[in-house]
């Protein structure tokens, strides 16, 4: 019987398929943009790519693309950092102290299921239309994921390890810093990665609602002037930046949690 196990290696190189698929994708896009009805508001891929590179020197609105990206990054960085600074301690407190859990868990359970972007109107009411409301929104979006992952990470640290630590005479503080935190670290890192995607999403939404610069503004402004090329250029930038940061976080994880990966 001829085995067709999907795990068997194919004879054709993957990159051939990759090139073919991207070529087909671009070709369909090109064909669609040629038609009279859609072509007027849907530029072909080459225009978009050209515009993307041009946007690094030519201004969109008041700034060039790198400045817009920096604006978005500053917002997401500040809000995300706030979320991390609150979320990790909160998760650790709830996991390690029963009193802490009893106090914070009910309130956290109220906040937890609220979809991040539903905070937008309240953020605007409380903090105005400026930067502060964006920081708040991004912080709230990132906070929930980080707290949950830290909490479960610290709660379900291998009991054997904790027992071993206790047996070797570690006190509570030593146990916390030398066993629980390293043990929870892979989970905490998963939380950091997962919530970054949410935070990046939130900054785009916040910039679309009210802003004068940033990648979210680029696509929203493009929509208002029915400038599809600008929308697509913005989407390209958003996708690229999100992708690069996700890859950086993955690389950081490989470095910091090397012991964990090797153990698996």
């Amino acid at each position: 019987m001829k085995s067709k196990n999907p795990l068997l290696k194919s004879k054709i190189e993957p990159w051939v398929y990759g090139t073919i698929s991207v070529a087909i994708f671009l070709f369909i896009w090109y064909l669609v943009s040629l038609s009279d009805r859609i072509g007027t508001f849907f530029p072909n891929p080459f225009i978009v790519i050209k515009q993307f590179f041009l946007s690094f020197t030519n201004k969109i609105g008041r700034d060039t693309m790198p400045v817009h990206i920096l604006y978005s990054l500053r917002r997401v960085g500040t809000g995300y950092l706030l979320g991390v600074l609150i979320g990790i301690p909160l998760g650790l407190i709830m996991a390690c102290s029963k009193l802490g859990r009893a106090i914070f868990m009910p309130c956290f359970s109220i906040v937890r299921p609220i979809p991040g972007l539903a905070w937008i109107p309240l953020a605007i009411i409380w903090f105005g239309l400026g930067e502060k409301s964006k920081y708040f929104l991004i912080c709230m979006t990132a906070l929930v994921g980080i707290t949950i992952q830290t909490y479960y990470g610290a709660l379900f640290v291998d009991k054997t390890l904790i027992g071993a630590g206790k047996m070797l005479g570690a006190n509570k503080v030593q146990l916390f810093f030398n066993v629980i935190i390293p043990g929870a670290f892979p989970n905490i890192f998963a939380g950091l990665q997962g919530s970054f995607a949410g935070a990046w999403c939130a900054v785009i939404a916040a910039e679309m609602i009210r802003s004068d610069q940033g990648t979210g503004w680029i696509i929203f402004n493009g929509m208002n002037y029915a400038n599809t090329a600008q929308v697509l250029v913005g989407m390209l930038a958003i996708g690229l930046v999100g992708f690069i940061i996700a890859e950086l976080l993955k690389a950081l994880e490989r470095r910091l949690c090397r012991w964990n990966i090797q153990g698996k």
Partner: peptide, 23 residues
């Protein structure tokens, strides 16, 4: 191998960022 490259291309774009294009 045929679908993944396109998929990797589209996936990092958050759903929110599709809103203007769809509108």
């Amino acid at each position: 191998m045929l679908i993944t490259p396109i998929f990797h291309f589209l996936r990092p774009i958050p759903p929110i960022a599709w809103i203007p294009l769809m509108l």
